[in-house]
Design a protein around this nucleic acid. Structure first.
Length: 463
RNA sequence: GCCGCUAUCGUCUAGGGGACUAGGACGCCGGAUUCUCAGUCCGGAAACCGGGGUUCGAAUCCCCGUAGCGGUACCA
């Protein structure tokens, strides 16, 4: 019979960890793992430990650690303990190693990789290597793996997965110099740090039996495991630079909002049963359950992220929007920028796209010859002169008044709206894409608008 | 090679023996909004990897293929 803990008990019993290795920037897959751990921890009031898996001293760097922390902060994923450097726990690892050596669960063996290969060639494929113990203190240390039986990973997502022990080598847990290896360090740390749930990438599933074996040898209770399906690029291959924004800092540079990225990443491998797509972070926390995560690998599709980001952008209060744009552009969030954001908000899908829409308010018109050639046809000069004249007395210089002042020109020149408004747009912005024309004129102000319209008219042949 | 995992529209997914004429979202295509672009609204095309079982009935359960992916380091 199973018993349930009272649900209103402060659940300080769950403890998760996100444990990246600082061998590069945090990419999207790592970010999703971090997010899922964070959501799982926040969902039931558990704790999140950030542990830096830096036992590979060759590839781990300070810069990468800094980059990971920076990415976590940008994503607004906080942690309760750490960052803890795994390398700095070397004495704990050494102690565990000592115990295993003393109890006979581990032994020294100086077989090289080639010797292991030779052993396998002799003993048949599918047989894990079993070494010969030596007293030589400079030999590497291997864990003694049972020759038979199986080790079962009770995965929260996949259910029980059994691995035959015989297929595993007596794997090396510490190098000749005494430094420990990943599968050993992880098992020891997870146990000693009281981790109750390990949520990580699928690539670790086959490693889990090794960690379970270490834990068993140590007499430690294992945590519960959940292995997330991997993320791939649009071509179905492993995510890489070629796939566009692959790291968290690239996502930021591309102008995505942290909240949108969290929403999108949450949906990559996990979904709700009622088809909800747009979710605030609070809702994500409330609804997320590790056990509901899917089993198959997902492909990162930037198009959907863009759409989602656009939705978040449009729903932001103007002040918040202006602040985000200012931060992204490295500008002051002043009144001028706020006004510019006001007319551009509904049109941009990323922060990066905002500048192209509002640039004309801060700098002289760009020179887009193609747009000019397409729009500034014969006879446009006089039209623009008339536009300037019509705009001159508009007071106050507001969108509705401007529209009212310009509308009569349509009949007077017998023009379709596009033939009147596009030239004005090109005149004041230099290009053919901008926020609404009346709003744009109003934001630019009468003086500058007239100046630009007249300057454009002068470039055109007179009537 | 050996050990594992996975398989629904192009993509993310819902579905867990009968409610499936397989639902939603992105993207795509068409239309509307007679200022561009975007947005918004309406409509459309688009999938159960293959083969065997089990069952009255299978997208759903089982087996075998196939494909993709992961692990197999004195990397993490």
């Amino acid at each position: 019979m199973e018993t349930c803990a009272p649900i209103n008990m402060p659940s300080d019993n769950s403890r998760l960890r996100f444990a990246p290795s600082p061998t590069g920037a945090l990419h999207i897959g790592g970010a999703r793992t971090a997010l899922y751990n964070w959501l799982a921890a926040r969902h039931d009031g558990g704790e999140l430990v950030l542990r830096i898996e830096d036992t590979d001293r060759e590839r781990s760097t300070e810069e990468n650690v800094a980059q990971i922390l920076d990415a976590m902060r940008w994503l607004e994923l906080d942690w309760d303990v750490g960052p803890v450097s795994q390398a700095e726990r070397a004495d704990r690892h050494a102690e565990a190693l000592r115990r295993l050596l003393d109890s006979g669960h581990a032994y020294r063996d100086h077989a090289t990789g080639k010797e292991v290969e030779a052993w396998k060639a002799e003993h048949g494929a599918g047989r894990g290597y079993r070494g010969t113990p030596t007293e030589d203190p400079t030999a590497a240390i291997r864990l003694r793996v049972p020759g038979e039986g199986e080790t079962v990973v009770h995965d929260l997502i996949r259910g029980p997965v059994a691995f035959p022990n015989a297929s595993y080598d007596d794997f090396v847990i510490a190098r000749a110099d005494g430094s420990v290896l990943y599968n050993f360090a992880v098992a020891v740390d997870d146990a000693e740090m009281g981790i109750t749930e390990v949520v990580r990438g699928d690539d670790h599933l086959s490693n889990t039996p090794k960690q379970l074996l270490v834990l068993e040898a140590l007499g430690q209770e294992p945590p519960r495991y959940a292995h997330l399906p991997l993320l791939h690029g649009p071509d179905g291959k492993k995510l890489s630079k070629r796939h566009g924004a692959a790291s968290v800092q690239e996502l930021r540079a591309a102008g995505y909002l942290p909240a949108a990225v969290r929403n999108y990443l949450a949906l990559l491998g996990w979904g709700t049963d009622d088809d909800t797509t747009l979710m605030s972070t609070e809702e994500l926390v409330r609804r997320f359950r590790v056990a509901d995560v899917g089993k198959s690998a997902a492909i990162f599709d930037e198009k959907k992220l863009r759409w989602l980001n656009g939705r978040f952008m449009r729903e932001m209060p103007l002040d918040e929007y202006t602040a985000a744009v200012a931060r992204h552009l490295g500008r002051e969030a002043d009144e001028r920028l706020r006004a510019a954001c006001g007319i551009a908000q509904e049109k941009a899908q990323t922060l990066e796209e905002v500048w192209a829409l509002i640039r004309f308010l801060f700098e002289p018109p760009v020179s887009d010859e193609k747009a000019w050639g397409k729009v500034m046809k014969e006879g446009t000069g006089p039209v623009l002169e008339a536009v300037a004249e019509a705009l001159e007395p508009v007071e106050p210089f507001e969108p509705a008044r401007i529209e009212a002042a310009l509308a009569p020109l349509l009949d007077r020149f017998g023009l379709k709206p596009g033939k009147l408004y596009q030239p004005i747009r090109v005149a004041i912005t230099g290009t053919s894409i901008s926020p609404g024309i009346f709003e744009s004129l109003a934001a630019l102000g009468r003086e500058r608008s007239l100046e630009r319209i007249r300057a454009a008219a002068e470039r055109l042949p007179p009537a």
